[in-house]
Amino acid sequence: MIADVVKNESKNEGKLKYGLFLGCNIPFNRPDVEQAMRKIFPALGVEIDDLMGQSCCPTWGTMPSIDIVAWCAVAARNLCLGEEKGIDLMTACNSCYGSLNEARHKMLTNPDILKSVNDILSKIGKKYEGRAKCRHVAWVLYKDVGLERIKESIKYTLDDITIAVQPGCHFLWPSEVYPDKEEDPFNPKVLRELCEVLGAEAPYYSKLVDCCGMGALRSTDPEKSFTLVKEKLECIKEELDADLIVTTCSSCLIQLDDAQERLRKSGKLNFSIPVLHYVQLLALCMGFDPEQVAGISVTPRDEIIDKIINKR
């Protein structure tokens, strides 16, 4: 089956082109992340297709909680939008990355599931062949664009800035289903290297791979969710005294940014650390308008943006 997966890889034929898969949280909640991607990728020589008609991946609380074939059918329609154009998808949302790749893995390893999915897709004149997959923007930047090209493209460097990285769960596990894998998913290096190439320090800290408590955990029990995020933030403060938290996941971004403010308001946290998605940080370093690529946050970012751009 592994051989089949390899055989089914989409061919990009030298030029870098991806379908920009947005999901829900990015276009509606954090559109500055969407705008950051629309700015950086063309500037780095990566063409993006809008994947017109894309939908929710589907996220964990919806179809994956109902039925496996139903989950895969919704995912397959999204994957088909790329497959029909001979391109892979790419996303900046870990939930989309997880859901689409888990669904693809199920379809490629279980012919019964793929057949049931294609029976459903035939009603709208589509068929999923298993070729198109979903890449993560961080991996596209790391592997396809490459650290050298990123280094050449930036206008501002992050000297004297210490970053606490938050890769997020669905960037790492289960490694079996993902098209790109860290050497050790419990000691991830990719996001650290992506930050270091911008000139920042991005050291290891003991809660680096810990969950931020977002998603189902927060909607089920906010108090327990805030316990997790508070522990993580305190660890970042104590061990790194970080200037900035940088994540590759839109859910982690919302949780670390928004829950931080809630904890401060209820007197449970007495410090503030700005949070950015990696694509936003890169967009800032490349010189794009901060209002457009990093204009939406709960925890203030003005100071760090000023420090990056004006070196104050």
């Binding site: 947005l22 509606f28 500055d32 969407e34 705008q35 008609g53 939908s55 209002e291 457009q292």
Partner: peptide, 19 residues
Amino acid sequence: ARKKVGLPEKPPSTDSDEK
């Protein structure tokens, strides 16, 4: 928020594609 960051009001998803 979308307008503020210079994006069209609707993303290129099912939100702007009836079919």
